[in-house]
Amino acid sequence: MLLVASHGAALGAQGGALAVNPMGIPRYPQQTGEALYKGVCQGCHMADARGASGAGKYPALAGDPRLVAVAYPISVVANGQRAMPAFGTGFSDAQIAAVVNYVRTHFGNSFTDSATAADVLALRRPRPPDF
C-alpha cells in the first residue's frame, strides 16, 4: 500500500534504474553475475558473502555446501525463501542464471557445472496474478 501510494507513480518513469517492463514491474539494470551480486545480493549476504548476524542472520554463501545442486540457488533466487524476497519477478532467466553461476564460482565455491536460462525457466514459479 505504501509502495503503491508513494512510488507506484515514480516506477512508471523511464531511465535510471527505474526501468520497468510493460507490466509495470521494476527491472534490475545489472546484467552480469558480478554486477548483480554487487548491486543487489551483497546488500544482505555482504561483499565477502559471509552473511551477517543481528537479531537474526543472513546466511553465508561463501563455502556453502547447499550450493552443490544448481537447482537450489536457482529456486531460492527465483522464488524466494522465508524472509528472502523472490527475485523471479525482477530478474530475467538469464540474470538469475548469471548470478547463480557467479556465486557458485566465487567466495571459495568452485562448482564446475553451470546454470542456464532454460534451467531457471523450468524452476521459477509463476508470478501471482495480482502482482
Binding site: 516506477l11 548491486g39 543487489v40 546488500g43
Partner: peptide, 10 residues
C-alpha cells in the same frame, strides 16, 4: 524502494 533500494542497500 524496489531495485533502487536494493542498490542502496548493497
Amino acid at each position: 524502494f524496489g531495485p533502487n533500494a536494493f542498490a542502496f542497500t548493497a
